[in-house]
Simulated assay, not measured.
Amino acid sequence: MPTGPVQEALDALPLVDHHCHGVVTGDLDRQAFETLITEGGAWPGISTFDSPVGVAIRRHCAPLLDLPRHAQPDAYLARRAELGPGEVHRRFLAAAGTEVFCVDTGYAPERLTTPAELVEPVGGTAYEIVRLESVAEEVAAQGGEPGEYADRFRVAALEAVRRPGVVGVKSVAAYRTGFDLDPARPSDAEVTEAARRLLASGAGRLADPVLVRHLLWTAVDLGLPLQLHVGLGDNDIRLHRSDPAHLTDWLHLTAGTIPVMLLHCWPYQRQAAHLAAVFEQVYLDVGLALHHVGPARARAVLEEALEITPFRKLLYSSDAYGVAEFHCLGALSFRRALAALLQERVDDDELDLPDALRLAEWAGAHNARRVYRLPGAS
């Protein structure tokens, strides 16, 4: 185990996870579990336990189920089933040491815990992040006239963000169109014509570039922090189009408006760092990547992100989805990686210890509290 004063401070710090999801409430068989721990799905003859994330689960999560390190998959899943989803959930969230969870509720093909259900076993605080594509698709599913779409979406989005506990919004534009879009706000006529195409198609999926642009500008009008998925995702994403550098012109146009939170970022953590360094409103995390590479490689990912990122711009997220292991593994990877990087700078006399401890608290909790205006912000 890594040691040192920075590691000790981070281990004791209650984290603020500024982007995560709920966990599946029912029992999981092997195929369901293996599908949930990968972005690629479970394939015949290839076990996702034989991947970096699968190995990390067996190494770091097995002891929390009273199993030896590196427990074999069948033993791991049998013990998980024996304990039941509620106890598994409690153990891993308690081990994560996360105090505040900002929960994206917009994607739930399985029955997931609500924000309140997610934190109930550990007594944390949960807030909600509204996924704007889900709101737009609900509006489109209700039909109506194309010329009414923009106003109806605006009203529905306002209603959604006024729900108690909502602190931000999110877009998955990276999945739907990518970021290489015309950065300008679309005209009313353009939105009406795009809505006409969407409603006539009956597709239900918001993937029209004009409507995605309209969604992003609506987010600006809402005034809350906007989370943007960047980089790594499932095979629905076109990775080269999710490079956040494509957002540069849009960020110029939206300067002075809302905080823009670049989520996950791998393999574009350096591009995201550049944007955070040159645009006041841009922040980043490397969340999803951390549990997929595991503690063994989390430092390498975070190290690139921190080459030029201002320390007030780095946040923690787990992007945990479906299985509680990811809440635990994400927190462990983040604490170890950040502690190692900061402690090395202290040891090399590039940073003094009080500054290192302050920067660790910023990244692990205080930056998120400040941006999302949560209690305890500093």
Rank of each mutant, 00 (worst) to 15 (best):
D347C: 06
E325V: 10
D29W: 11
G41R: 14
G202N: 00
L251I: 08
E280T: 08
L216K: 09
G86K: 14
K170I: 08
P5Y: 08
A173W: 01
R79H: 03
V169F: 12
S187V: 07
V210W: 07
A160H: 04
A174D: 05
A194V: 04
R30Y: 04
H19P: 05
A94P: 01
A272R: 13
V278T: 15
V172D: 01
D11I: 06
V122A: 04
R176V: 09
R79M: 05
V220W: 03
H327N: 13
L13I: 06
V119P: 10
H246P: 02
G41N: 05
F153K: 06
A95V: 04
A156P: 13
A219H: 11
I129T: 11
H214W: 14
G144S: 12
S51Y: 07
A12S: 14
A173K: 00
T3N: 11
G147W: 00
D347N: 13
A200D: 15
A95M: 01
P209W: 01
L253F: 00
D50R: 14
R345E: 14
V6C: 04
A156T: 04
D74E: 15
L64R: 14
A365F: 09
R299Y: 06
G147R: 05
R111G: 01
R345A: 13
Q269A: 02
L315P: 00
W362S: 07
A277V: 03
V282G: 08
S201W: 11
A356Q: 10
L315A: 04
D208S: 04
W362C: 08
V16K: 08
L263G: 01
Y268D: 02
F49M: 13
L198W: 13
K313F: 03
P68Q: 14
T177Y: 02
A203P: 00
H214D: 15
G124P: 13
R131L: 12
L36C: 05
R370T: 13
F33V: 02
F311E: 10
L228Q: 12
A12G: 11
R205A: 02
L15N: 12
A300C: 02
Y316K: 01
L374R: 14
C265D: 08
Y76P: 07
E120G: 02
S242D: 11
L253I: 03
Q281S: 07
A12V: 09
H70L: 09
R185I: 01
R196K: 12
Q271W: 11
A298S: 15
E148N: 11
Y76K: 01
D66A: 10
H60Q: 10
E325Y: 10
G143W: 13
E159G: 10
P68R: 15
T257G: 04
R370A: 13
R358L: 11
D66K: 00
R373M: 02
H327K: 14
V278P: 07
A320G: 14
A356F: 08
G97Q: 07
L15M: 12
T25Y: 05
T3S: 15
V172P: 10
V135A: 11
